[in-house]
Design a binder for these strands. Structure first.
Lengths: 252, 252
DNA sequence: ATATTAAATGTACTTTTTACACTTATTTTT
DNA sequence: AAAAATAAGTGTAAAAAGTACATTTAATAT
């Protein structure tokens, strides 16, 4: 039974049509792993699961899955994301393919890593707790299996790089947010502080923000005005270069 | 014999240790394909080969190969590149993993695409003509097999994007080059023209160029001074943001 | 000697970025 | 009820970067 599965169905074709070259090649397991970022208004977080199977059972891991015969990577990543969070239409981008022969000690497995940005509040509404998933502050995450820490590092870099030029961080925010919250997010990601007058001016100059009438009173006595994202402009300007960051050098 | 090859060696482990999950997964062919860019002083070119095996035998294709059991993607890409061009230490960067189930009509094959930048003159010295490889002007390339044209498009975009901020295009130039040549390259890649005074000022401000005593007399009567790349600074500043391009908007 | 060609070079103007400090709204404390 | 505390909100001047633009120069060809 397992043996039958082991022989790829395409091989039938290989034997009927003459296709000598393809026959001799080794086939590999291919997985998709997702680096899922969330923001709770204060700090950047990472969604991790406790691995359910050996090896390394019980250790923390990115959320991943083997790719299925009929699905491509995007579909696989979306499936994983939907299973875990119940969310659809999440921001998702291919990060990198990882392929060191020994990255999985059991059997060589190629992993195509994706990173996702989600509004953590949406998640909380949709939560599916079947998987023992947990949010960890990015600066205080546990050890991860295999090369998953390397993946997270690369994803953080990529996120920083993109955020320096594109308004990508809005993907992490709830529908209504304040400018101080937004600044907080930028400061967390770039691990620095910005002058709030200059930051506000720069953000406003993008014209992506629509001021609301009400204020957030949770975080200060005076209260900070809520803003919403102008989705039309956001979609149109996503690829424009906005130079969010004062000295983008050494971002890499 | 072919059958024996067909069963991945790791499977032995799977049967001795209990590892139920891994068993049921389908394995896939994994290839590396290289988008190889070259610059001849006038225009940007692409190195293509005529495919040697069915299907689509004789059609033009990117240079690629199935990945071997013991090599990772970088090693595979370097192997391909070295086989084709005889060159080592070539600039190489992972572009994207392509995984549509039907991208290869014979059997599902994952392709991890890399793009390479090479000094075309070095190539000519090292040329290995076993493979029927040929340079095509990027604007006048033939139809390619499978999804290779999509790969090339993505590589062009990536190259443009990177070149807008990082001094990556020096990888395409010979050791000695002139400022007008460099400008030519930038203009070709961004498909526009720049003011030569401003361009020269911007390039010089990077301090990456070391003026030589001799001139290139091939392309003008007056001759243009040769420059060399300051490799120390280049290595140190590669990740700095240099803002080479006047209006980097809509580069994507 | 003259014409031709492409290379090299400077300046004034505009836009963007940066540095920097006080006032305001509201709640908490006394 | 007044005073203190807290974080939000806002403007201006100086510096740096980016842009637009035209003439001179070196060498060869006529």
């Amino acid at each position: 039974m397992a043996k039958k599965h082991q022989i790829p169905f395409q091989e039938v074709k290989l034997f009927s049509i003459a296709m000598p070259k393809y026959q001799k090649q080794t086939r590999f397991l291919v997985a998709v792993d997702c680096i899922i970022f969330g923001f709770d208004g204060t700090e950047l977080k990472l969604l991790l699961v406790q691995r359910g199977l050996e090896p390394e059972k019980g250790k923390w891991s990115l959320i991943g899955s083997f790719i299925r015969e009929e699905e491509d990577f995007e579909k696989g990543a979306n499936r994983i994301l939907n299973d875990m969070t119940g969310l659809e239409g999440v921001y998702l981008e291919q990060l990198h393919a990882f392929g060191k022969p020994d990255r999985d000690p059991i059997e060589r497995t190629i992993s195509v890593a994706y990173f996702a940005l989600i509004d953590i509040h949406q998640y909380e509404r949709q939560l599916n707790d079947d998987y023992h998933a947990e949010w960890f502050p990015i600066k205080d995450a546990p050890r991860l299996i295999f090369d998953h820490e390397q993946m997270v590092e690369m994803a953080k870099k990529r996120l920083r790089y993109k955020a320096a030029f594109h308004p990508i961080l809005f993907e992490l925010l709830p529908e209504k947010f304040t400018v101080p919250q937004l600044q907080n997010l930028y400061e967390g990601i770039f691990d620095t502080v910005f002058d709030k007058r200059n930051f506000s001016r720069k953000i406003q100059s993008t014209k992506l923000l629509v001021k609301q009438k009400d204020k957030d009173k949770e975080n200060s006595k005076k209260g900070a005005y809520y803003y919403k994202l102008d989705k039309r402009r956001y979609a149109a300007n996503f690829h424009a270069f906005l130079n969010f960051i004062p000295n983008p050098d050494n971002i890499k």
